[in-house]
Design a protein around this nucleic acid. Structure first.
Length: 125
DNA sequence: CTCGTGACGGGGG
DNA sequence: TCCCCCGCCACGA
């Protein structure tokens, strides 16, 4: 392709692509996404990117912080909105507004912590 | 070009 | 468990 813009996914779109792949009832953390995308990405920047996400085409509610809680705060809408949307998908939160990442946490195939397996380049890079 | 900001994370007390 | 501090990097002013 001569037009590089087409082939070159923008910094943000790489994040969105992963978010769109998260199945309902599952969640991912900012740090996890940053780690999958590799160098150049940090939890901070992933959050920044999510801030500008198109809420109509990206399941933004499935991205939460490493504590298992919604970090949306009160900046955009009722804090409960994100949590409520997730609960509607079957994610259970405790009184402190946290869910169990060991249960609801999700990762694209081929990334399962690579215990004794080598690192896989990634299907999202 | 520089500066500040932010949907974060992890370590330490 | 909670609170504080520091590092991280894209992006707008």
């Amino acid at each position: 392709m001569e037009n590089k813009q087409v082939n070159e996914q923008t910094y943000r779109e790489r994040v969105y692509k992963i978010v769109r792949a998260i199945p309902p009832g599952k969640v991912m953390t900012y740090g996890q996404i940053a780690e999958i995308l590799g160098e150049g990405y940090t939890p901070r920047t992933v959050g920044y990117v999510m801030h500008a996400a198109d809420t109509q085409t990206v399941p933004w509610q499935r991205v939460i912080n490493s504590q298992g809680a919604c970090s949306t705060g009160k900046m955009m809408m009722p804090v409960n909105l994100q949590q409520k949307m997730l609960e509607d998908e079957g994610v259970k939160f405790n009184e402190k507004g946290r869910c169990d990442l060991k249960i609801y946490g999700w990762m694209p195939e081929g990334f399962e912590e690579t215990k004794d397996n080598e690192e896989q380049p990634s299907l999202f890079e």
